[in-house]
Amino acid sequence: MFQISPETAADEYEVEMLFDLCFAPGRTALSSYRLRDGVSPVAELCLLLRDEGSLRAAIRYWPVRVAGRRCLLLGPIAVHPTAQGEGLGALLMHDSLGRARDLGWSRVMLVGDAPYYSRFGFARLEHVEMPPPTNPERVLGLELQAGAWAGVEGPVTQDIAQGT
């Protein structure tokens, strides 16, 4: 039976091991990680999915700013290789996005594959600039409140101030 729960400090090592297993070495050299340096994740949205106690998937969110406006940066999200294709990533996506909406967040962005993330409502953010060397085709956004991305364009920067 699957259980979704918030990540705790005690889970960090296990979660990092899952991310290392699922992503190429050097994942922390990506430009999206520069936006996370020295910034705490949004704890209420960093979730784990366990099956009979075993970690099967994890998702994290970080606060960022786009042209000065608050936004969530989704990622990473990972599903253990032995559980991929079972819909666990989708379970975490739907659960965490619902929690983000309930917490009052209005917009989410990520860097990822449009064909995969479009099924959750993400679309290309043509006027949002991630730090280089990010491929602009992979910068995607989702509105949690109608019109939340309207007129929001410019560079993505760190958000040191926490909260919604």
Rank of each mutant, 00 (worst) to 15 (best):
M130W: 13
G147P: 06
A146K: 10
E143Y: 08
T157K: 01
V139K: 02
L144T: 14
N135M: 10
P136N: 11
P136S: 13
W149R: 03
Q145L: 13
P132N: 09
G154Y: 04
G147I: 05
A161Y: 09
L142N: 05
D159M: 14
L142S: 04
Q162H: 10
P132W: 09
L142Q: 11
L140E: 07
I160M: 11
G141D: 02
E153R: 02
R138E: 10
T134S: 09
N135F: 06
V139F: 02
N135R: 12
N135D: 15
A161M: 06
G141N: 06
W149M: 13
E153N: 03
A161K: 09
Q162R: 10
Q158G: 03
V152D: 04
G141T: 06
L144A: 08
P132K: 14
P136L: 10
A146M: 05
L144K: 12
D159I: 07
A150E: 07
V156T: 02
G147N: 07
E153A: 14
V156F: 07
A161N: 02
V139C: 12
V156C: 07
E153Q: 10
L140K: 00
M130D: 00
P132D: 14
N135G: 08
P136A: 12
P155A: 11
A146V: 05
R138M: 15
I160W: 12
R138H: 14
T134D: 01
P133K: 13
